[in-house]
Simulated scan of single mutants.
Amino acid sequence: MLFEDRVFLYASTKSAKFLALLIVVPWVLDLLVHDYVMMPFLDRYVEKVPLAAEMLDVRRSQKIQMIKDLNIEKARFRFEVEIGKSPPLSDEEFWSELREKAVELRDEWRLENRQAFANIWSDMVYGVALFLLMYFNQSKVAMIKFTGYKLLNNISDSGKAFLIILVSDILLGYHSEAGWHSLVEIILDHYGLETDQAAVTFFVCLVPVALDVFIKFWVYKYLPRLSPSVGNILDEIRRH
């Protein structure tokens, strides 16, 4: 085995181990902080501090969703009575069932709000842990960069052009608008933030367009200098 190959094998092995460390350690800390620190703390805190209980209580949009769920539950009760699956309920029993369902939904939404609030702090711990691992292991970070650079160089020019087209189409293709909408809504929901459709639409109209301009500028301006053959392949594809 050539010396260069031995160096690459050593670097790739070390890089893989450190990359696994970068994934596992922050994730474990995130999980521990979320489930075993923040959630027990919030469960006690909302019981003792009325303001905290109010802040993490069911929000307006969640109340609207609760109403929809309760209407579905009412329809289900009546339907099951009609088809004979459930015995007829008196008005008192019917409203008692609905109250139980409403309390159950309320508790679920309150728990979700506490989990979303805990996500903020646990994700901050994740970010800090990731930063510290990278900051105090600069040599291993450099090794990951070296490995990535070597792997990229081993890809053929056609493969590089394919990857550029694939990534740009995933991020900026005609179908990507729905993906950007979903991504923003998932992030907002993860942190318990209200989804403002106008703000989401503005973000989706602005960020992908700016990203598209940046990628095109890089492809036209700098890619031909870095890899003329890849630039030629992309030009040939665009002509067809």
Rank of each mutant, 00 (worst) to 15 (best):
N153H: 09
K68R: 13
H34W: 12
E100H: 13
G192V: 01
Q62K: 12
L188K: 08
V37C: 10
L183E: 01
K74R: 15
K140G: 04
D123H: 13
S90N: 10
S86I: 06
Y135I: 04
F8Q: 02
D5K: 10
A118N: 10
V209G: 00
I237M: 00
M134L: 13
Q138G: 08
K101S: 12
V24N: 12
Y222K: 04
P40S: 13
F79N: 11
Q115G: 03
L132C: 12
D189M: 00
V209M: 03
D43S: 10
K221N: 03
N153Y: 05
A161D: 07
A11N: 09
P87C: 07
Y126K: 09
T147G: 08
E177I: 13
P26D: 11
D35E: 10
D157Q: 14
V141A: 11
S61V: 14
D107Q: 14
L163T: 10
I144E: 14
Q197N: 06
V207A: 03
Y10G: 03
P26R: 11
L51G: 05
N71L: 13
Y220W: 01
L193P: 06
L171I: 05
Y220P: 00
R239C: 01
L206A: 09
H190E: 07
D57I: 04
L2R: 03
L32T: 05
L223F: 00
S168Q: 11
S122H: 05
W95A: 11
R110S: 04
D189Q: 09
E73R: 15
H181A: 01
